[in-house]
Simulated scan of single mutants.
Amino acid sequence: MLDFDVKRCSRRCASTNAELSPGDRYYSVLVAEGAEVVRRDYSRDAWQGPPEGSLGWWKSQMPDEGAAKPKLAPSEVALELFDRWRDQPGQEDSVYVLALFLVRKRVFRFAETAFPVAQTGEETLRMFCPARAAEYDVPVVEVDNQRADEIQAQLIELLYSDAS
């Protein structure tokens, strides 16, 4: 199993070195540099898409000063959403993004068994959920930027609430 130590946002644009201010939207990308995984943050204006060979990327917004931190729903709620979406046709891209989110939140891990290739020839990720002692095969789906933003907004709406 691969485990990465991803650093927090640098609060500076990797391209321009400009400070990211409260409320600014920015992009983060993970790239492999030798044996390390490095995070780079880019202002919206400097973002030109993920670099070739990047491991992953996401869009975020710098928190406003004094804003209440959003509170994530309990892991079981996210797992129930995962189960529900897996059973719904046409939700493959949402299931894939949610599975990666669950890895990021340490609810899922990449299973130690090999990533299988389904009989249809599609690539899948094998995920392990320690809380359920269960493995899941999640088809790898290419998600374009617009759809990724839509799924992210849906996850925020479903899984986060303002802290009281």
Score class of each variant (00 low, 15 high):
Asp93Lys: 15
Ser60Asn: 15
Phe128Tyr: 15
Leu98Gln: 13
Pro130Tyr: 12
Ser94Met: 06
Pro63Gln: 10
Leu81Phe: 07
Pro116Ala: 03
Asp93His: 14
Glu52Ala: 08
Lys59Tyr: 09
Phe108Asp: 12
Gln61Cys: 10
Glu135Val: 12
Trp47Arg: 05
Ala46Tyr: 04
Val95Ala: 06
Phe110Ser: 04
Leu72Ser: 06
Arg106Gln: 11
Glu80Lys: 15
Val103Gln: 09
Trp47Lys: 07
Gly49Met: 14
Val97Phe: 04
Phe82Asp: 05
Ser94Pro: 02
Val77Arg: 09
Arg132Cys: 09
Asp64Thr: 06
Gly66Tyr: 09
Glu76Ala: 08
Pro51Cys: 12
Ala131Val: 12
Leu125Arg: 10
Gly34Lys: 00
Gly34Tyr: 00
Lys105Trp: 11
Ala111Thr: 02
Asp87Trp: 03
Glu65His: 08
Gln88Glu: 15
Phe82Arg: 12
Leu81Glu: 13
Ser60Arg: 10
Glu123Val: 08
Arg132Val: 09
Ala134Met: 15
Met127Ser: 13
Val37Arg: 04
Gln61Val: 07
Arg132His: 11
Arg109Met: 01
Pro51Met: 11
Gly53Asp: 05
Arg104Phe: 04
Leu100Thr: 14
Val97Lys: 06
Gly34Ile: 00
Pro116His: 01
Gly49Trp: 15
Thr120Asn: 15
Ala114Phe: 05
Arg84Phe: 09
Gly121Asp: 09
Phe101Trp: 12
Val77Met: 01
Glu92Cys: 02
Arg104Ser: 14
Glu112Val: 01
Leu81Ala: 13
Arg109Phe: 01
Leu98Gly: 07
Pro89Arg: 13
Glu123Tyr: 09
Asp64His: 10
Glu112Leu: 03
Arg106Ala: 08
Glu80Asn: 14
Val117Lys: 05
Phe101Pro: 05
Gly90Arg: 08
Leu55Met: 07
Ala131Pro: 05
Ser75Cys: 02
Arg104Thr: 08
Leu100Glu: 14
Pro63Cys: 05
Ala46Pro: 07
Phe108Leu: 13
Val37Tyr: 00
Phe82Ser: 06
Ser60Asp: 14
Leu98Pro: 01
Phe101Val: 11
Trp85Asp: 07
Ala67Thr: 04
Ala118Trp: 00
Trp85Arg: 12
Phe115Gly: 01
Gly56Leu: 03
Gln61Tyr: 02
Ala134Pro: 05
Val37Leu: 05
Pro63Trp: 02
Arg132Leu: 15
Ala68Val: 07
Arg40Lys: 15
Arg44Phe: 02
Asp64Arg: 12
Tyr96Met: 03
Lys71Pro: 01
Pro50Ile: 12
Glu36Thr: 03
Lys71His: 07
